[in-house]
Design a protein around this nucleic acid. Structure first.
Lengths: 213, 213
DNA sequence: AGCATATGTTGACGCTGTCAAGATAACAAT
DNA sequence: ATTGTTATCTTGACAGCGTCAACATATGCT
């Protein structure tokens, strides 16, 4: 079962030291997470998969929680890239840009369900076990949404009468709720998601005279 | 540690058979769930708590999943009672009734965080492990929301232009998202949730001339 | 060359869910 | 009342889990 991915010496014998175990573990963990979910991700299976003894990972991650935090951290970085791509588009009407952002969020969750569960799930956040690095990677995500909400209110896209922070929380909460219902298997049918997103966007935004963003 | 809750004979010796183990287990499981969360709820601790051997529960629940489903089932029944109380109130404006429903939903989740996690979490739904009884208890919850949404649209409280099913999914998704952000520890601050709920209700409803519901 | 440090290993512990086999009580039929 | 069936409860056992302790080996600095 165990695959040998350790570096080889010039005589093609596997060396005692792996050489790049931390990132190898992270990659394998991402794959294992995608295949088996959080529940199926055990340190022992992971170690076996990369061809290393069961306690070797402990030299690179203090415990399982730190490994999970590191995976989630990568998830936030990648989502940031996706979101920035959407926001940096030129020549889009504000409502169209918001629509794409909403759909992009749900798509990211739907395409990486187990990762999303890790990023926003209770496993990490409930018992305050998030590492400092993870917090630093996750916080800008919500902060950015607040900033954009403020802008959208100023543009007249979103109701200016509501408190910006509350409005951000509600709109993000809606995205999070739809994402969770989807990835937790409560809405089995992904084919309705686009329509749901459009419906939500309609509720949150009002038409404004054309003005590029 | 182990408490003896088994029935006693006339000579005050604990009898070999418990007599009411199934409901005793359910009660203890609810308490244990509230105290330690899903992760901390083990069959062995549970059995010990009610003073019975570790495999005794298997004569009343096929496996741990069936026990969890039974707990969740009770959760749905109790939520139904709360919701019905709200809907049966007389002399309330539609928007006020909807506001109470929204707040009631979030309050139920906030007051029973671990139970809510069980009712709507991936533990049960993700791998299609919900029992038939649980499905029968859970489905009316959403069905009722769709019916009410249809009514609210007809009353002019909610936008009639949107598809009823989509609208139900979005509004429920919002409640679910806010509930989850709260109970998963992502919004640590419960003091903001009333304002968040009001904000969401404002976004979803439009003022209609006074008409009791 | 020698020594500290990083990184890898095996052994062990207590926890978990759950199966198998046996003990005990309750109950239905004779 | 006795017998047999069935429901219920018991202990024993197993594999899987996270993780600590102790030990092995390679790397790198002085």
């Amino acid at each position: 079962m165990s695959q040998q991915t350790a570096k080889k010496t010039k005589h093609n014998k596997p060396s005692y030291h792996h050489g790049d175990l931390r990132s190898t573990l992270l990659n394998a963990a991402n794959a294992l997470l995608r295949e088996t979910g959080i529940e199926g991700l055990s340190l022992r299976k992971l170690a076996d998969k990369v061809g290393v003894s069961r306690t070797a990972p402990y030299h690179h991650f203090k415990d399982k929680n730190q490994l999970l935090c590191a995976i989630a951290e990568q998830g936030f970085v990648r989502w940031h890239q996706d979101a920035e791509f959407i926001f940096n588009q030129k020549g889009l009407l504000p409502q169209e840009k918001y629509r794409q952002f909403f759909h992009g969020y749900i798509s990211y969750a739907a395409d990486n369900p187990e990762l999303y569960d890790l990023m926003f799930g209770r496993t990490i956040w409930k018992q305050n076990s998030a590492t400092e690095e993870l917090r630093k990677a996750a916080f800008p995500s919500f902060h950015h949404q607040v900033e954009m909400t403020k802008k959208w209110q100023a543009q007249g896209l979103m109701p200016s009468g509501e408190d910006t922070l509350r409005l951000s929380q509600v709109t993000w909460g809606t995205m999070h709720g739809i994402a969770r219902l989807l990835i937790d298997g409560i809405y089995a049918d992904r084919s309705h998601i686009d329509a749901m997103c459009d419906c939500a966007v309609n509720l949150f935004t009002q038409h404004i005279p054309e003005a590029e963003d």
